[in-house]
Design a protein around this nucleic acid. Structure first.
Lengths: 163, 163
DNA sequence: AAAAAATAGATTGCGCACAATTTAAATCCC
DNA sequence: GGGATTTAAATTGTGCGCAATCTATTTTTT
């Protein structure tokens, strides 16, 4: 077995393909988001809130597969920038709700061309993009299902019990 | 246009698919690598060195699309753990060469079943895995080609001039 | 030969991402 | 009603990942 065909060869590691591609996306988005003074994770959080305002930190974490250790500092920075407000839920004070401000809402208009920009960079027809998106979402589910973890993403934990 | 079919909808963001999948890989590998006391990026660097010992920091950076700000601290930790040695090149003192120690070489034997483990988690036939790997590598090249950057990965810069 | 330019690696600063732990609030059980 | 358990968010600690800058060395240009 040559080095190139070894299961350990770098070029055979699907994980590295995703790792490096994710960083390449990060670098591409960094330039497109720089005029909005946003980082890529901040932009992703705003996308979630543009779809549905008033979500809790847990809601956002479930959608993005991120935990509160990552989200709390990030949301505090967005609040400092004036794009959101963080408020304890009146009915359940364990929960913090995230509301968009006028400034946060207005960023959506400025961001609306970004996906098309990136689509041009990739040169991927919409049908292929959707197919790849769907394939990756399925693989992600399988990985999530396979990871024994106390803080499992909600949708993976449904219907499953752990011993 | 409904929220779900908007170009800004989270479920339509290929970047988020890669971002979240990369993190899912990280979590999966964390458990498999914990017995070897390695982080995922350290493991990826070792994979490169198992293929070819004695590479420079720049060589490793080119292979992994990482810069020296990321690699230098990581390599120092691997050195502290006793898995590698860092040495200035005798002929060109700008370059630092990375040599595996006996400890670093022996980790390869312990790591050899990890890709199969992950393959089981994904449930992807080898042919599909290779096809996906190749498709992602192609997309990564296109993204790299599209990013105007002073520190462009070497292979993207070949044959291209910038004005 | 000497100055200028380029290259390689290291450092600084900042923003994540995650595991583990802590704090506060809500729910459940006796 | 009160204690035990669970849940949500925050905090602590650590390891990246990147941009910008700095230092040292090599190469190129004058």
């Amino acid at each position: 077995m040559t080095e190139k065909s070894s299961p350990l060869a770098l070029s055979n590691q699907l994980c590295f393909a995703f790792y490096s591609m994710s960083h390449a996306f990060g670098r591409a988005y960094r330039q497109l988001l720089e005029p909005l003074d946003l980082t890529y994770p901040q932009y992703v959080v705003l996308i979630v809130l543009w779809e549905q305002d008033g979500l809790t930190v847990k809601d956002i974490g479930d959608r993005l597969f991120l935990d509160s250790g990552t989200l709390t500092p990030l949301l505090k920075r967005l609040e400092t920038m004036g794009h959101i407000r963080r408020m304890r839920d009146r009915e359940d004070e364990r929960q913090v709700r995230i509301m968009l401000t006028e400034s946060g809402r207005s960023l959506r208009e400025r961001a609306k061309d970004i996906p098309e920009h990136v689509g041009c960079m990739l040169g991927l027809p919409p049908g292929e993009l959707r197919a790849l998106n769907q394939q990756i979402a399925e693989l992600r589910s399988r990985l999530h299902d396979s990871i024994p973890s106390p803080a499992k993403p909600e949708l993976a934990a449904k219907g499953r019990s752990r011993t």
